[in-house]
């Protein structure tokens, strides 16, 4: 349901819903003798909320870090389908991947804590701005025009996430729930083709979780942004996701719709606990 008319679409992908947006194939990541990921592969479809679940230490965050370029897997490919054709993300530096439209949030909030909410969100516009040195030093002219032009979209995100009241506050001084929201907002300001959310609801109470789930759904339904979501709360995952991939000890043990996955005996054993299968 579209409640407000926004001028900008937050979706940076030009693919039709239902087409494959990203293919992860045979990704293996090792730290010394520890295997974090062993031949993981799945496909993220345009327009889906794709949840990645698994017990602690299963390799979920490592997988996200491989996609966004912070880790470099020893084997495997991650292919993103952009408007300029497929792009191989493995081996690409993080800021290049961001330029292709992959935005993310972090499990432990990684905001720019001395900057205000507004400045954090404006940094989400970084890839869309030109940043010419002399224009920046002069301010009046192109630099100022650019700031104002991008501010319009940023204000739409502020409105969507209902953080108007804290716009000018340094993020370091905000409550945890707000910080999580700002982090989502910062990623949204990139107008991402693919949004990676690493436990956006961790450490929240039920009410805050519901709010956050609502925001993720809003983003997804209003703008059609494809979301890859890591989450521990099974209720949330089963409620909002279109597709679920399950990791356990670095291996993909299931991949399917929420109903299929929750019926999968391996998943029940690994994740939901043995006693539930009885």
């Amino acid at each position: 349901m579209i409640t407000r008319a926004y001028r900008h679409s937050l979706n940076g992908s030009h693919l039709a819903p239902g087409q494959p947006l990203m293919e992860v194939s045979d990704v293996s990541l090792r730290f010394g003798g520890i295997t974090a990921l062993a031949g993981v592969g799945f496909t993220v479809t345009q327009g889906h909320i794709h949840a990645v679940i698994g017990p602690n230490g299963a390799g979920k965050s490592s997988l996200l870090n491989c996609i966004s370029g912070l880790y470099r897997p020893q084997e495997g490919q991650v292919t993103l389908y952009t408007k300029n054709g497929p792009a191989e993300l493995v081996g690409m530096r993080p800021h290049r991947i961001a330029r292709l439209g992959v935005a993310r949030s972090f499990q432990n909030i990684e905001l720019f804590r001395h900057l205000t909410v507004l400045e954090n969100l404006m940094l989400g516009r970084h890839v869309h701005m030109r940043h010419r040195l002399l224009a920046s030093l002069a301010w009046f002219g192109p630099a100022r025009r650019e700031e104002i032009a991008h501010r319009v979209l940023v204000e739409e995100v502020i409105d969507l996430l209902q953080i108007q009241s804290v716009r000018h506050q340094p993020v370091g001084s905000l409550a945890y729930g707000f910080q999580k929201r700002v982090e989502l907002g910062r990623a949204l300001c990139m107008q991402p083709a693919l949004l990676l959310l690493d436990e956006p609801m961790a450490g929240m109470n039920t009410e805050e979780k519901e709010d956050m789930a609502r925001f993720v759904l809003d983003v997804h339904e209003l703008a059609g942004v494809t979301v890859v979501l890591i989450e521990h709360d099974m209720n949330v995952v089963m409620d909002i996701s279109d597709r679920v991939s399950v990791l356990d000890f670095g291996e993909l043990i299931a991949d399917g719709t929420p109903a299929e996955v929750s019926a999968n005996p391996d998943v029940v054993r690994a994740y939901l606990g043995e006693e539930l299968s009885a």
Binding site: H95, E110, R113, R186, M190
Partner: peptide, 18 residues
């Protein structure tokens, strides 16, 4: 702002395209 982003949190800065 990208300078300050690098100061505060360089990993996040790179993930934002800096």
């Amino acid at each position: 702002r990208s300078f300050m982003a690098v100061r505060d949190q360089d990993i996040a800065a790179s993930a934002m395209g800096v």
